[in-house]
Design a protein around this nucleic acid. Structure first.
Lengths: 191, 191
DNA sequence: GTTATTGTTGATTGACGAGTCAATAAACTT
DNA sequence: AAGTTTATTGACTCGTCAATCAACAATAAC
């Protein structure tokens, strides 16, 4: 009963399933069959739409980065003044959509992937640059020439908070993460 | 030509080789044969001394944590006053022995491992607790009741700096990492 | 000098998994 | 209605790899 125009639907389902499975298993050692099964199709079909498992990983990564980008852009649109912008970026980084168990687990594994796969490395570099530049817009008026150092520190801190979330049990504590990051920011701006 | 007392030598060689190979390949997808070859023996012998690949991973992890612990303890022995202690812990965290490419790569992968293997998780939790408590000793006299929050932030920041090192190319910049961490600390203590 | 004990490996087993292929079927085209 | 394109899968190939085994060698123990 082949309806036409299945491609985007199937691909979306596979991307979602990839993230969920990576998060569930906790590593990139997920089989294409597992992913395909969760997405409700055969592994052959998964290979039909994506050429390889690596392609699926990369598509999943792009998806997560897109989500993140959208959340930041949305928050930034409502923000006012440098302080508001900074708070918006930090809050969006730990937004409910990004800071969920599966996404965080997937994130960590994409970091690993970036050690081997150039395209994955590129994507992660894009994310880092974007975060850095978003922070700098808010920081320059407030921290002057110290802005760069503060941005680097805050960026690393955010990544570190993601990393630590992996070890924790129970649901992610977004408020605590935001508090820690904002605390850093306030301390730096007191200078 | 079997000399006796090979066990500790072989095991040490395997542990070292495990770390190097994980760092080189950039993931836990290293074969026992690769590790054994680098350590100058057959894969069968590797299995003889360690029951399984997982055991090798865990031994490698323990080794890295031991190195780190030793470096911290050494630095702490020479340190004077709360400030000195804090600086010592931070500097040791980015010490030449720990903050090398292979070790950082291995570290990241152990984080991944901790998602699946309880013992790996336990080891990482021990590291986190130790770091936190080391920081708190120095922080309590200086930051009072804010000590806990600052310790958590600094801990996450250190992990984040490790994480970011993975993406960088070229040799690790220890000085920059220490500077960023100390900058955070000074900002917090200015309150 | 026979008998454990320790060190060592090549060959083998057994399982698993990525990617391909041939076949089937429904839709669209002309 | 014949032909083309899209959707879909079960079965298969081919490679890889962790783990085991059987065998051999050298040292220590008695």
């Amino acid at each position: 009963m082949p309806k036409l125009g299945m491609e985007p639907i199937r691909k979306a389902a596979l991307v979602k399933a990839t993230i969920v499975e990576i998060g569930r298993v906790g590593s990139l050692d997920v089989t294409v069959s597992q992913i395909a099964k969760r997405a409700g199709m055969s592994s052959a079909l998964a290979h039909h739409y994506f050429g390889s498992k690596e392609d699926m990983f990369l598509a999943a990564m792009r998806h997560i980065l897109t989500l993140y980008g959208a959340e930041v852009r949305g928050a930034l649109a409502l923000a006012e003044g440098p302080q508001g912008r900074l708070r918006a970026v930090v809050a969006a980084s730990f937004g409910a959509a990004n800071f969920r168990r599966e996404a965080v687990g997937a994130w960590l594994n994409f970091w690993v992937l970036s050690q081997t796969v150039p395209e994955a490395r590129r994507l992660l570099a894009v994310y880092q640059r974007r975060l850095r530049s978003n922070l700098l817009v808010g920081l320059r008026p407030l921290a002057g020439e110290r802005a760069e150092m503060v941005a680097d520190g805050l960026g690393a801190l955010i990544d570190g908070l993601y990393l630590r979330e992996v070890l924790k049990s129970g649901p992610p504590d977004r408020a605590a993460a935001v508090a820690t990051a904002m605390d850093y920011l306030e301390a730096q701006l007191r200078a």
